[in-house]
């Protein structure tokens, strides 16, 4: 086993701080990881309204789940039948959104390689609170058939706050529909506070994430 220091991968050239000469001859310094990103850690957003209003909002949130169209493993193929006539999830208030800004629910659909974990983290952090994460298949629970792989993560909730697991390899679309209904119950009960949990334990999650992502070339928190 190599030393921790040796395993660190150096930043690629385009992300290093450097001096750039503009077309008008003016020289200025650029630090790609500092200039374009806000380095502030996430804030907690506790429920602030009186209970009856918060319950009403939770009902609205549960009945309007917008999923980020982002597939990570073989489970992504199980989401397609949900959009099409056979299983048609739209009738339960579930829609797919193409951008993380507008989505509430991130589905990690199957095994998550370390390379994809980076993108999943960035997508999750760009979503707006309250947001939920669903782990699909046994790969997200304990590694599944990739339990001894060098390049996939084994337990999803070490890296992102998971609200709901759907077991199976792979779970059928019916199982997903059942999972959505159960997630709705959790949201209605006001227990789906994953975003606040993430903000609260931000350092712990970052530590876990940086343990597996060796070439960390992004800001600590993507707004």
């Amino acid at each position: 086993m190599k030393d921790e220091q040796d395993r660190k991968v150096p930043l690629p050239d385009e992300l290093l701080p450097r001096k750039i000469k503009g077309p008008d001859g003016f020289e200025f310094e650029v630090d790609p990881l500092q200039d374009y990103f806000c380095q502030e850690p996430p804030k907690e957003h506790p429920p602030i309204y009186v209970k009856i209003v918060e319950d009403f909002f939770n009902w609205a949130r549960s009945e309007s789940l917008w999923i980020l169209g982002f597939g990570t493993g073989c489970g992504a193929i199980e989401m397609r039948p949900l959009m099409t006539p056979r299983f048609d999830a739209y009738r339960y208030g579930i829609q797919w959104r193409p951008t993380p800004r507008q989505a509430n629910l991130l589905i990690i659909s199957g095994y998550l390689s370390v390379k994809t974990l980076k993108r999943a983290i960035r997508a999750y952090e760009q979503m707006q609170s309250p947001k939920y994460v669903m782990g699909l298949g046994s790969c997200t629970i304990n590694g599944g058939m990739y339990f001894d792989s060098y390049n996939t993560i084994k337990r999803l909730d070490e890296y992102l706050p998971v609200d709901m697991y759907i077991a199976g390899c792979m779970p059928r679309p019916e199982a997903l529909l059942k999972g959505f209904e159960d997630l709705k119950k959790i949201i209605r009960a006001g227990d789906a506070e994953g975003a606040n949990h993430y903000a609260e334990n931000f350092e712990l999650y970052k530590e876990n994430q940086k343990k597996v992502i060796l070439d960390w070339d992004m800001p600590d928190y993507s707004w």
């Binding site: 909002f57 609205a60 009945e63 048609d88 009738r91 208030g93």
Partner: peptide
């Protein structure tokens, strides 16, 4: 497909107005 519920637009609207961040 069966399609969305006829009151879905109201729920989506309330949901988006009630987002916290």
């Amino acid at each position: 497909r069966y399609g969305i519920r006829f009151y879905q637009n109201y729920i989506d609207l309330i949901k988006n107005y009630s987002m916290r961040s």
